[in-house]
């Protein structure tokens, strides 16, 4: 039923995984003294950058990103600006969350922020790519009946895997094993990345095995129309309505 999407998704994920791999290998070749544990921050940035660039490129090329009705340059620029702002805010949000979870407040603020950047590029960026800079839609996606396409389901799975991975990654920190990967934030970032990679594999697989049962209810189009079109009005509402309509059309075509 969703064969086309699943194939596209699998290849996208393969590209993403490959980019993570390359982001680890390439600096090791070119930068002297590079190692995942030793120069952890460098590795973090390289992975974040790779995932960011590849996701944006792939999702743009695939056209999953909600199309905009207005094609004016100003509108596009404002969208871009808002995306960047959300990206940065999300970094701050993750930083705060991680500090609340027990990360040192001042001592290794740079490490914590780098972890926040990684988490953002693995989760928020995907939201940005799939749903656009629309926080209402983000919140809506993470509910039981909130997914409106396979891409939304995929988003749910990868984000959940990444966050859970980072959460589990904090477990070994208090252990007295004195391993290099127990140093803050190595285990958490590794956990997040492994969670992300697991999500990349799990999402197409899960969708493939449940493709018979996956139905994205039409009611949600009306839901969207209702919520955003009627209640919010304005640009966001218009845009969301567009998204819903596009999805609807898309599904019909399938």
């Amino acid at each position: 039923m969703w064969d086309h999407e699943i194939r596209a998704m699998a290849s996208t994920h393969a590209i993403l995984a490959a980019s993570v791999f390359m982001a680890t290998v390439l600096p090791a070749v070119f930068v002297p003294g590079f190692s995942v544990y030793g120069t952890h921050l460098l590795w973090l940035y390289s992975v974040s950058a790779a995932v960011t660039v590849v996701s944006v490129a792939v999702f743009w090329l695939l056209g999953v990103t909600p199309p905009t009705k207005k094609h004016t340059l100003g509108y596009k620029l404002s969208r871009l600006f808002r995306s960047c702002l959300y990206f940065f805010l999300s970094c701050l949000f993750f930083h705060t969350l991680v500090v609340l979870y027990g990360a040192p407040l001042i001592e290794s603020a740079l490490e914590t922020f780098s972890l926040a950047v990684l988490l953002t590029s693995l989760t928020t960026l995907r939201c940005l790519c799939v749903l656009g800079p629309n926080i209402q839609a983000w919140i809506r996606v993470f509910s039981r009946h909130g997914a409106m396409s396979v891409w939304d389901t995929c988003l749910q799975i990868t984000v959940a895997c990444t966050v859970v991975g980072a959460w589990v990654g904090a477990f070994p920190i208090p252990l007295d094993w004195d391993r290099p990967w127990q140093v803050w934030p190595v285990s958490c970032s590794l956990g997040a990345l492994f969670g992300f990679l697991t999500g990349l594999i799990a999402a197409p697989a899960w969708i493939h095995y449940h493709r018979k049962h996956l139905t994205y209810k039409l009611t949600f189009i009306s839901y969207l129309l209702g919520t955003f079109g009627v209640q919010l009005g304005g640009k966001d509402g218009f845009e969301a309505t567009q998204t819903g309509r596009d999805c609807f059309v898309h599904m019909k075509a399938e």
């Binding site: 609340l100 509910s143 209640q231």
Partner: peptide, 28 residues
């Protein structure tokens, strides 16, 4: 850490069940 996780889980779970946000006007 565990308490915090459980506390954060509560609204996330409510949202997953679609209870955190008011349900919209629904024609059906």
């Amino acid at each position: 850490f565990l308490l915090l996780s459980l506390v954060v889980y509560t609204p996330v779970h409510l949202n997953w069940d679609g209870l955190l946000l008011p349900p919209s006007y629904d024609p059906l």
